[in-house]
Design a protein around this nucleic acid. Structure first.
Lengths: 200, 200
DNA sequence: GACTTAAACGAACGTTCGTGCTTTTATGTT
DNA sequence: AACATAAAAGCACGAACGTTCGTTTAAGTC
């Protein structure tokens, strides 16, 4: 990797960091350049547009997410333990040093839910993948006998992500010290229901 | 009410509308003035600063929230029916004509969770009130015999709000047509657990 | 040492931002 | 009709925005 790619990575790293705090649209090239002790133009030359920078920062975060949340969780035994691992890893993910402003996807989701375009499309794709991954692990949990046979895995994925969003809100905005406990309690309620489920 | 207050209200109405789409920081005085066919300076004169405008837009939304969600729901019988009413009204709230960009509080919550200041403080206060209201109604549900005696009302309030946040995500970002059904299913799961609860 | 290429720079473009002043236009009261 | 006051407009400011230009430095090749 040449020197160009080196600084390019440094830029994306900082862009991801900054965007987690001020959002993808709050991300400014001037601020970014100042943080990295670079000139605006020198930095900008690495990307064709700000939109490209936003997309690449998003993809960089996605890579980090796989590294920090997904891959380690996949090391856990299939089914319920793996679901637990995904959940716990996600809680930790929101306070990783690389994301001082919390989960970038949550921030971007609220920012972009009304703004059509390629950035939004990418984010929707990533979130779809994430929900599908949860649903897949939940389905495996049925095969393993952890959950009831008529479990609606997509519903459980949706509900689980809702618990995570609730945690993000309680933890970040409300600064509730019990946020993690609350989230875990919500998680257990869902698992209990998933074990003894009659209808979807 | 003089003409000043009249336009002042019109400004706040539009500010609320616009902020639901682009956020409280994306809210710009120039854009606002253009939408209302006013001059920037004429509009600005109504407020001492942009921050004041943001706060007042937030409070205007709060008033509307009481009018659209809280007050009608309080007409329902106490306990579980009232909780259902609050929930259903909230779902409708996110697609009220006054908020083309979804719930302003959700948008602001993500924007402000990292930015200390009076705007954030106000929002936290409002969200606290909202969670307390849910918890109070849930507690009444215990007295009415709808829920188990050892119910943790604050936990239920937290969980319910999480379901709402999940709905907002599924509905707005993911454009999932099943979002409302998913949210209702999540709601029922929580109520079922609240009826037959052993531990908090 | 001459030449090529990649990387960062400095300056400027036109716009928009929030915020002040000063002036003009409406409104409302005697 | 004359006046007092409130509301909106006009204009300008300094700063920051994304973006483009031409130039300079640094690295690598022959």
């Amino acid at each position: 990797m040449g020197k160009g790619n080196k600084t390019r990575e440094a830029i994306l790293d900082q862009a991801m960091r900054l965007a987690s705090e001020v959002g993808l649209s709050g991300l400014s090239i001037g601020r970014l350049a100042a943080d990295l002790h670079m000139s605006k133009s020198g930095l900008f030359a690495h990307f064709q547009s700000k939109e490209t920078l936003q997309i690449e920062a998003l993809m960089r975060a996605s890579g980090l997410f796989v590294e920090i949340v997904v891959r380690p969780a996949l090391a856990a035994p299939r089914g319920e333990p793996r679901l637990r691992a995904l959940f716990e890893r996600w809680l930790g993910w929101t306070k990783t040093a690389e994301l001082p402003g919390g989960c970038l996807f949550v921030t971007a989701a609220v920012e972009l839910d009304d703004r059509p375009g390629p950035v939004r499309d990418r984010l929707v794709g990533l979130q779809k993948e994430w929900l599908e991954l949860i649903a897949r692990v939940a389905t495996t949990g049925v095969a393993e006998g952890h959950f009831a046979g008529n479990l609606d895995a997509d519903q459980l994925a949706h509900d689980l992500y809702a618990v995570m969003l609730g945690y993000h809100h309680a933890s970040r905005l409300m600064r509730d010290p019990r946020a993690a406990d609350r989230a875990r309690a919500g998680f257990e309620t869902l698992l209990t229901a998933a074990r003894a489920r009659r209808s979807a």
